[in-house]
Amino acid sequence: MQLYQLIIIFSTVPLILAQMPSFHSLRHINLVSLLLCLAYSICVTAGSINIGKSKDAPFRDYSMNGSQLNKVFGAFNGISIIATTFASGIIPEIQATIAAPVKGKMLKGLCMCYGVIICTFFSVAISGYWAFGNQSKGTILSNFMGDENPLLPTWFLLMTNIFTLLQLIAITLIYLQPTNELFEKWFANPKMDQFSTRNILPQLIFLSLSVITATTLASMLPFFGDIMALFGAFGCTPLDSFCQWFSTM
Rank of each mutant, 00 (worst) to 15 (best):
N77L: 14
I51W: 06
M249W: 08
G74S: 05
L165H: 04
Q19A: 10
S142N: 09
L15P: 05
C113I: 06
T172Y: 03
A229T: 08
I91W: 03
K103S: 08
S80D: 12
I174G: 00
I118S: 09
C236N: 13
I126Q: 03
G52N: 06
S241I: 12
A57V: 05
L17P: 01
M20T: 14
I169D: 06
A83R: 06
A214P: 01
K71P: 09
T248K: 04
G232H: 07
Q244C: 01
M1C: 08
A46Q: 09
F23W: 03
P101W: 14
N180H: 08
C43N: 05
P150W: 10
M112K: 03
E148P: 00
I51P: 02
I174E: 07
I227C: 08
L201V: 15
G109E: 13
I174R: 01
P150S: 10
A57N: 07
Q135G: 02
G232R: 07
P150I: 11
A57T: 04
P202Y: 09
A57I: 04
L204V: 14
L31P: 01
A131T: 01
S11K: 10
D240M: 09
F121I: 03
G146L: 09
I29D: 05
Q95M: 11
P58E: 11
M220N: 11
A83M: 03
A214I: 13
I169E: 06
S48I: 03
N30H: 06
A125D: 09
G47V: 02
I118A: 10
N50W: 02
L152V: 09
T248L: 09
I90L: 05
M106G: 09
L31M: 11
V102K: 10
P202Q: 06
F187K: 09
Q167L: 06
T237A: 11
P14H: 13
L158M: 04
S142H: 07
V32A: 11
T45P: 00
S88H: 07
F246P: 00
G146Y: 08
M192W: 01
G225F: 10
S127C: 13
L31N: 09
N50A: 14
Q194Y: 10
S208G: 15
G104W: 04
A188F: 05
F223P: 00
I90G: 00
S208L: 12
S41D: 07
T216L: 13
G78N: 15
A87D: 02
K137A: 14
F10R: 04
F23C: 00
G225E: 11
M228S: 04
C119F: 14
K105E: 06
N134E: 01
L38A: 12
